[in-house]
Structures are given as C-alpha cells and as structure tokens.
C-alpha cells in the first residue's frame, strides 16, 4: 500500500487546515504548519497545542458539520473515509488523501503535506531526520542476533484472551524489524492477528513486547499484566524474564515520532546494545 496524494485544487498555502487523524496532526505541527491547523480529531493529544483546537470527530465518526463550520481550505482525511471525502468533495473543499500502510508511507505523507502546505524544506528536514535516526539504529544493531518477538497490540486485561499481535504487514511490523527484532508472525499477511494460546506456545517467542496506547503504566499494572504470562512457562520469553511493556501514543501513531518509537523498541529488544540513546 502506498500513500495517495490527490490535489483537488493547488493554489496558495492553505490557512485553515483540518486534520482528523492523530498522525497527520502531529506531522503538520512537526513541519511548522501548526498555526494554520484549525480543527483536529477527537483522539488527537499531541502536541500540547491541539488541546485548544476545535474537535471534528475521528476516523469512524467524522463530524462533517463541525468540519464545514470551520470553513477549512484544506482537509486531510484518511483514504478509507469515503463518505466524508464525497461530502467534502461536493462542498468543494480542497482535500489531501493519504493512507498509512507501511512505515515508508509515513515519510511519503510528510513530504506530500510539506508540498501542499508550501513547507517542503521543513518537511524534507523532518523526513531526513527520521531516516537518519532509523539508519543510526540500524548501525547500532549491526550483526546483533534478532530475537524472535511477539508484538502484542491488544488483549483482555489480566488474561491472555482475545490476544492480538502484529502480523507480518503494517507499520508496527516494520518498526519491530527496524528495531532489530524478528516478528514471529511475519508469515501472516494481516496487521492485527488474533492468535491462540496454542499458537503462542508453538511460536515460542524469545521476547514478548506489549505496547499500550496509554501514556503510562503503573508498576502495579505492569506486575499484574506480566504475571499473566506465567501461565505459559515454556516460552523462552517467560523463562528469561523478557516480557516487556511499553506505553505511549508514539508507539501506535505512525507520525513524526516514529524513529524515537523504533529506538524504544530497539532498547527493549537489545537492552545491552550501545548507541540507542535513552
């Protein structure tokens, strides 16, 4: 999947931008177009400036009325928001569509947003910064063995039921690979794979990496959730004490913080590798 950039009209730099998805909002602020953003999605929390902006719904429930009321001259919907797109098109509002399949798409979107907001230089600086940071992580991990990792993205609280892990496609899989891990589910062609206890036992991951979208996890929470894994004592990850919890929106938003998120993954997978920063 690649990022799709459609220019409905392309004249002057837009002055009233609406972004309904966290990743795009972060990118716009990162490339210096923040002052032009007038509306953001319900789930947008980053950067802090968005707290004061109007909310326009989210991926599944965009609020077309709120968007139109903001009189935007650029809206950046996700490519699957078809109803929203056709409504905005009939209202003749300029659009820039995008889709984040893989991690590479994030860079494409950054550059596309840069061109559209007349901030190509800044966008290129941001994109190049991400590329350099990822390359540095790659260098730091050269010749290191890749631990076979189960990247857990969701499960029921204090049980292993309804467990979803990253399959072999999507930006989280890409992050895991760039962080020097081998995805035990690399063979599945789905982003969120529901796996059974039997499959986990059979895959026998060296590391279990659990990501949570919330800002923090308390020590008690981590202890409680880590204890759940003791029911599968044969897993190398359980025996070696390599069940790791990471919390933060940067881990689940394919935006400009992606390189530092990959570095967090890398530090979790290779705690003794030098040159991965803090």
């Amino acid at each position: 999947m690649t990022a799709v950039a459609t220019l409905v009209t392309a004249q002057a730099a837009p002055q009233r931008i609406v972004s309904a998805i966290p990743a795009v909002t972060e990118i716009l602020f990162a490339i210096g177009a923040g002052p032009q953003v007038v509306g953001v999605g319900s789930y947008d929390r980053c950067p802090a400036e968005v707290e004061d902006l109007a909310r326009v719904g989210g991926l599944i429930d965009p609020d077309i009325e709120a968007i139109l009321a903001l009189e935007p001259d650029l809206v950046v919907p996700y490519a699957t928001q078809r109803d929203l797109i056709s409504q905005l098109e009939s209202a003749r509002i300029p659009l820039l569509l995008y889709e984040h399949g893989s991690l590479g798409d994030v860079l494409t979107t950054i550059l596309a947003l840069g061109r559209r907001t007349r901030r190509s230089a800044q966008a290129e600086r941001v994109a190049r910064g991400i590329e350099q940071n990822l390359a540095a992580i790659g260098t730091a991990l050269t010749d290191r063995p890749r631990p076979r990792t189960l990247l857990v993205i969701a499960r029921e609280p204090n049980s292993l039921r309804n467990l979803f892990a990253s399959g072999g496609v999507g930006f989280q899989h890409d992050m895991l690979v760039l962080a020097g891990g081998e995805n035990v589910l690399a063979g599945t062609s789905t982003r969120a794979a529901q796996v059974t206890t039997e499959t986990i036992l059979q895959l026998a991951p060296d590391v279990v990496l659990e990501v949570r979208a919330g800002d923090t996890m308390t020590e008690a929470e981590i202890a409680r959730e880590a204890a759940v894994w003791q029911t599968l004592p044969s897993l190398p990850a359980v025996r070696e004490g390599r069940v790791v919890f990471l919390a933060g929106s940067d881990l689940v938003i394919p935006g400009p913080r992606i390189a530092s998120a990959v570095a967090r993954f890398a530090r979790a997978l290779h705690p003794d590798a030098p040159g991965l920063g803090q």
């Binding site: 969701a154 029921e156 049980s159 292993l160 039921r161 309804n162 979803f164 059974t196 206890t197 979208a213």
Partner: peptide
C-alpha cells in the same frame, strides 16, 4: 483499540488458557 477489543469480546472466545 478498546472498541476493537469489546467488539471482539462480543463474538465469543473459549481460549480460557
């Protein structure tokens, strides 16, 4: 993620481990 999880719960699951 939570919405996804709750929708999935509604479909039933016997993996009681």
């Amino acid at each position: 993620a939570q919405t996804f999880q709750t929708v999935r719960w509604l479909m039933g699951n016997l993996d009681v481990s």
